[in-house]
Amino acid sequence: MKILVLISNVPDTTTKIRFTGDNKAFDTSGVQWIINPWDELALTRALELKEAGGVEKITIANVGTNATEPTLRKALAVGADDAIRIDAEAKDAFFVASQLAQVAKDYDLILAGIESSDYNGAGVGGMLAAMLDIHSVSAVSGVSLENGELKVQRDIDGGNQSLSVPTPLLAVVQKGIAKDPRIPAMRGIMMARSKPLNVVPPADVEARTEFLGYELPEPKAACKMVDEDNAKELIRLLHEEAKVL
């Protein structure tokens, strides 16, 4: 079995989000870049499957400029076998999925994180599956290989299901798919030097959406106080004003 893991390069989750002057673009100065946390879990699960046997190769694929290479090297250092970077600035989910469709054809299992922690698009995985005309399962919290057959767990409202799905399959994965992401070992970091990182030119595709601008949320308002003897008022506020109940 060959596995492809889609990797997005995102700002570290502790990054203070800022935009440049006219709020038109994300300010990348001083930003630490990491593997998108959900993609990292996907990769972790792929490695576990490989260690359990039955997986011959794990490839990672990313759409990005050469600035994303440290992130790809890290994925290689934790154990991916080779990497493909499609040399283009990611524009929107459709653009990214279209680029990936060029290189994603010969895999039995494609793993995509459910969303990226920057644009929270949640689109690339499903789009890619549609473009490749292969099956997909979303909200996947478990993937295993039993006698060469794929077993998949997915979350549904208020529960979960186990499924059997034919290959090739694209699984859109979320929390639960693997435990903690791996930390690269010295040996892996050393081996990553010599693993192939293939750069592919982008396909000529137009994005279908355009980010026009950004806003930051209003600063936190002062705490709204409710009287001790009228505590029920709190529930009304949470229900009607905050709408969280």
Binding site: G123, G126, A130
Partner: peptide
């Protein structure tokens, strides 16, 4: 989230 991306394509 499962259906929309496929649908959009």
């Amino acid at each position: 989230k499962a259906f929309a991306p496929r649908l959009s394509v």
